[in-house]
Design a protein around this nucleic acid. Structure first.
Lengths: 338, 338
DNA sequence: GTGAAAGCGCTAACAG
DNA sequence: CTGTTAGCGCTTTCAC
């Protein structure tokens, strides 16, 4: 690997001139600059990023911390973030923390000195812990609002409203919500939006759960939903929705004929199930992309950037799990046992 | 951020002693070492990884290049790789290359000077390009054999045999294979293993396709499969298998009552579909883990490591898409049109 | 516009 | 066992 010195001697100039030719092309004679670049090219010279980073701190590395790489929710987010990072000539470091605040701290400790900024995807750390680390490096949080720290979130309220309007247009008048983890900020948001939409649209809503945000969680909620008067249900997320459909089917109901089901997020898998899931699609790629763009912007301007969270629009994707309410709700066999 | 100098003066020793206290604890007085560590701890000293890497080249960074982060096939691989990397106190850099050889080169160019080694997951680069980059940094390839370069692959032959045995035990005697991309090394492997198993087990096999390795590809193949005498089909991968089930269902056949279907890989989603897919599960996490362990081992010993590819066992996961062959094959409605 | 020189924070000989 | 001395390759004043 040739160094800047090799190029310098080959060009008959000082190393500092070579350096300038790359970092500050304006401040060097156009001709010499061109010559230097050409020679460097010929020699196959590549600046050593480590050596550059040591005096300047510019590592061209950004960290994206995800709570679980294995969760389909993140795939598109990672993709979007990486796209934006690469576009700005940054490399993205994805750290997986297995849903553990402890691992998250460790991963951050490891990565922080290496990166110029970090985006926290659904962090498991406390607000105060996040604030502490935000002082060390520019930070953007995803799916969480934290006053003083830039964040980008999905417009769940609007998405929920769209879902409700859709169900109402399908003549549903009594709609259930299968709640996710109590601690989830998104869950609170969604349930509140549902109640508001219910008021506006003049329909009844009923809350089930909370359940774990998994297939099993959804299945677990099926009995209660089946036993209720509800003709449609919105679930905390797609996994819960799919589990719910499965449980409903197992207890003798048909989706969507007897009960319509709507999920949240539109993860990979929402169109793998049968019936394919109608869901409020989170702008996953955009979320990732916008998060790093916000981060980059904040890094560029030394002033603390936008204080209010960026709201990215959610969109309702209508597939097969929702249909016009049946004239009469068929009683599930399972419910008769009770 | 305190530096090594701050710790040194605070302890009344030379900086090099502090350095030694951390990197070569044996070569320094146990007492002073302890004192240094304690003081460092108190001051919140953290070695600057950049500064350490510059003279030594030890960045504690490994790269994992995946052809598409968005492909569920990789989730577990990434998880496994990250686990192994972290266990060895390395950080994993995941680079997504959007199925493009060009992007792959670029990503590698960016990451190579930063990392100590790289694992290539289903690389889109040519063999020779891979060999060139393998000279720059220790390399391990996944799902591909490349003489001279360590690789770790799934034991597809055995997995295929298990699938065939399973189908035969279910009384199937005529089995189809829906082929994936011609260029796929795994595809050739699987089809060959099927033919061999067919000989051993005395059943007939028939090849369909090739189709794209996607849901649509599978759906596309459904007509041909439905029109054939085959009572069971093995698909190139899970996505194709799910698409196939869907297509079969659409043409009036029932899975598994009329046709049994088996996939490959056991991606997230294989148990989301209905019926849940019986599939030859690739040891995804193990693949990732073993790849970085192999890489690390190769980096430790200066001798070029194991030359023959590591074969990781595949396992048949029986779910709902396979069943005993029906007495008589019901003719699909669609097939009668032909 | 260009060269010289002083580091960035750490490691690795080399002496003592 | 410990201190001294050079760097790693690049950037950045500061002079000229």
């Amino acid at each position: 690997m040739p160094t800047i010195y090799d190029v310098a001697t080959a060009c008959g100039v000082a190393p500092s001139t070579v350096s300038r030719a790359f970092s500050r092309p304006g401040r060097v004679n156009a001709e010499t600059a061109a010559r230097i670049r050409r020679v460097a090219e010929e020699m196959g010279y590549r600046a050593n990023p480590l050596a550059r980073a040591l005096p300047t701190g510019r590592t061209s590395l950004l960290a994206l911390v995800v709570s679980d790489v294995t969760n389909p929710f993140y795939f598109e987010i990672i993709r979007g973030a990486e796209l934006a990072a690469n576009a700005a000539d940054y490399t993205l470091l994805v750290a997986d923390v297995y849903e553990s605040a402890v691992v998250e701290r460790k991963a951050l400790e490891r990565a922080l000195p290496l990166v110029e900024g970090v985006v926290l995807g659904t962090s498991r750390m406390s607000d105060s812990a996040i604030r502490v680390m935000a002082q060390q490096r520019p930070t953007v949080v995803l799916n969480r609002v934290l006053t003083g720290i830039p964040s980008v979130i999905t417009d769940n309220a609007r998405g929920t409203r769209r879902a409700m309007e859709h169900l109402v247009s399908l003549e549903h008048r009594s709609i259930g919500y299968v709640a996710g983890p109590e601690a989830s900020w998104a869950d609170g948001m969604r349930w509140r939006a549902m109640r508001e939409a219910a008021d506006t649209l003049d329909v009844r809503v009923q809350r089930f759960g909370p359940v774990a945000p998994t297939l099993a969680g959804g299945t677990e909620a099926a009995a209660a939903v089946a036993g209720s008067a509800v003709t449609a249900a919105v679930a905390y997320n797609d996994l819960v929705a799919i589990g719910l459909m499965r449980g409903l089917t197992a207890s003798g109901l048909r989706v969507p004929r007897d009960v319509s089901v709507v999920g949240f997020d539109d993860i990979f898998g929402a169109e793998l199930c049968s019936p394919m899931l109608t869901t409020v699609a989170a702008p996953l790629t955009a979320l990732g992309r916008y998060a790093v763009q916000t981060l980059l912007a904040g890094m560029a301007s030394r002033t603390p950037p936008q204080v209010r969270p960026a709201l990215l629009p959610a969109e309702l994707v209508v597939r097969e799990s929702t249909a016009v309410r049946a004239r009469r709700r068929r009683r599930p066999e399972a419910a008769e046992d009770k």
